[in-house]
């Protein structure tokens, strides 16, 4: 049960019940669909960039508590970050859930730290990282669009 409390912390349960930035965006600069076929998590991530800074990011779809709360927290953390900062945070978050050793270039996780209890539940790591992978895909699309323009 202690492990479970680590996993399902109050903050996480709250984000699951009341996900922030849970909405589709009308004309996003970037958009991607992410799916975790193992448990049926399906989310869409929408993204607006301005001068290389994440101006707005939102998501919708349906997922488990870990997936939904991770997506919700991600949207809060990403707003106002540059592309490089956003990707560095993604990488550090990913390391925290999958690697035992800290990486030298890891940036502080801030509020995302509550999600690191997922590390004790390896089958659930994909739930926690799905939103980030989907954001990454949306961002790459924007970058792709820009580079072909």
């Amino acid at each position: 049960m202690d492990n479970l409390r680590e996993l399902y912390q109050e903050v996480i349960l709250d984000h699951n019940k009341n996900p922030r930035n849970f909405r589709a965006m009308e004309n996003p600069d970037g958009f991607a669909h992410g799916a975790n076929p193992l448990c049926g998590d399906q989310i869409d991530v929408y993204l607006n960039l301005k001068d290389g800074v994440v101006e707005d990011v939102s998501f919708d779809g349906h997922g488990c508590a870990i997936c939904t709360s991770s997506a919700s927290m991600m949207t809060i953390e990403l707003k106002g970050k540059t592309e490089a900062e956003a990707l560095a945070l993604f990488e550090s978050f990913h390391h925290a859930l999958t690697d035992d050793e800290p990486h030298p270039n890891d940036v502080p996780l801030g509020k995302l730290k509550v999600l690191t209890g997922v590390k004790e539940f390896p089958v659930r790591v994909k739930c926690a990282t799905l939103a980030w992978h989907t954001f990454d895909a949306a961002l790459k699309k924007v970058q792709g669009d820009i580079s072909t323009e």
Partner: peptide, 8 residues
């Protein structure tokens, strides 16, 4: 509760 959370 999502089935994945029920399972855990």
């Amino acid at each position: 509760v999502h089935p994945h959370d029920i399972g855990t």
